[in-house]
């Protein structure tokens, strides 16, 4: 709550968040990535590594659920 005093106003197009890194994304994305959807361009291209990490997170959660929820003896029936 203390921090909101200094935050930029809502919807301010000149806030630092919008000025510094993003304009490059917006102007160059069409030429560099050939994708009109900017969110996809950033997600899959510039920050594709984060998307890989995200996929790994899903994989981890899936493996975790299998690890945790398999009942004993069930594995033996479904194998071979």
């Amino acid at each position: 709550m203390y921090g909101t005093i200094d935050m930029p106003d809502w919807g301010d197009p000149n806030s630092p968040a919008s000025i510094h890194v993003s304009p490059q994304y917006i102007t160059n994305a069409a030429t560099e990535t050939a994708t009109p959807n900017l969110v996809t361009a950033v997600l899959a291209d510039y920050r594709g590594y984060d998307t890989l990490g995200e996929t790994v997170v899903i994989f981890t959660a899936g493996m975790a659920c299998i690890l945790l929820l398999r009942r004993r003896g069930e594995g033996k029936k479904t194998r071979r």
Partner: peptide
């Protein structure tokens, strides 16, 4: 991010010194 617009550590280190007084 809201006050600097960047997510890179080295970049933040460059931008932040001007903002140390900010409560955010």
């Amino acid at each position: 991010y809201m006050v600097t617009g960047s997510l890179n550590m080295a970049d933040l280190a460059k931008i932040l010194p001007g903002l140390y007084g900010s409560k955010v």
